[in-house]
Design a protein around this nucleic acid. Structure first.
Length: 283
DNA sequence: ATTTAAGCCTGAAAGC
DNA sequence: TGCTTTCAGGCTTAAA
């Protein structure tokens, strides 16, 4: 599942194909993804102009000329692929129809956006633009980690007294929105914090240190076009390459990369999710 | 209010 | 080779 950097990369990749353009024809190939798609979705999209593409946490929001906003979530395996346009100096032909192509948007001018999602943990919904922030999936999200509302005071308040591991707290989208398993692992390594530390046990300095680390990891990952493991691709089909910058994620048994550390990266399972860590560096 | 476990799906990879 | 098991980047709901 795409986390914040992957979603932001996809959003940027969709802009040239979608922003300012008309949805000439929308095709909806099944009635549901994770949840039922909104009633008459294809009809409500067709003929609409895309005024802008926003991102909130791991959601993409497409504001449409008719006053509705299309919400898109990629779930674990969702892809938004753009075709019929020039990308990186090459013309991308429309691909042959593929299994799990659930929604197709044909834009005026010839571009096509295909939503493909094998596992169908993804979602789409339509709601009035002026109440988009109140959508059930968005209403209770914490602040954007790259925005001004996310700071030391906020994080301290949200972690105070919590008995859950810091790993779980940072994955909690109500604390800060957009982090997933990969980036939390990388953040905790850089912060020198063991994933099992109870959130409420962090010192004020440790909490303060997390804020710039979270920002840096996300910004670096966006810069790299996200991380491609199994499913993720950028909108043009390109791979991201931040996975090559992982210091702990997926590196179980390999040497710690911290200068002067001769430790070995380990893996523990916390509430069913893998946490990768250097037991020497992270306390 | 917090925290944990289970469940939703498919496909790739690992194990036998 | 083929069958079975395990695991995966998210999020919700129900239950503790």
């Amino acid at each position: 599942m795409p986390e914040l950097p992957e979603v932001e990369t996809v959003r940027r990749g969709l802009e040239p194909a979608m922003t300012g353009r008309l949805i000439a024809a929308a095709a909806v190939n099944r009635p549901d993804l994770r949840w039922p798609l909104p009633p008459r979705m294809a009809e409500r999209l067709t003929g609409q102009r895309v005024l802008g593409l926003r991102r909130r946490s791991k959601y993409i929001l497409a504001d449409l000329s008719g006053g509705e906003t299309l919400l898109i979530h990629l779930g674990m395996s969702g892809r938004m692929l753009v075709s019929g346009v020039m990308l990186g100096g090459f013309f991308h032909d429309h691909p042959a129809p593929a299994k799990h192509d659930h929604v197709i948007l044909n834009m005026d001018g010839g571009a096509r956006v295909t939503f493909n999602d094998p596992r169908r943990f993804g979602a789409m919904d339509l709601m009035p633009t002026d109440s988009a922030e109140g959508h059930p999936l968005l209403a209770s999200l914490g602040p954007e980690p790259l925005g001004n509302a996310f700071d030391e005071a906020h994080l301290r308040a949200r972690l105070a007294g919590r008995r859950a591991p810091i790993k779980a707290a940072l994955l909690d989208q109500h604390v800060v929105a957009g982090l997933g398993n990969i980036y939390v692992c990388e953040v905790l390594f850089r912060a020198g914090l063991a994933p099992g530390r109870l959130a409420g046990s962090l010192t004020p300095d440790e909490v303060a240190g997390l804020v710039p680390i979270i920002r840096a990891v996300l910004l670096e990952a966006i810069e790299a076009g996200g991380s491609s493991l199994r499913d993720y691709r950028q909108a043009g089909g390109e791979l991201g390459y931040f996975q090559h910058a992982f210091r702990v994620y997926g590196r179980e048994g390999q040497p710690c990369l911290a200068p002067g550390c001769d430790g070995t990266i380990g893996r523990i399972v916390q509430s069913g999710r893998s946490s990768f860590l250097c037991p020497r560096c992270q306390r």
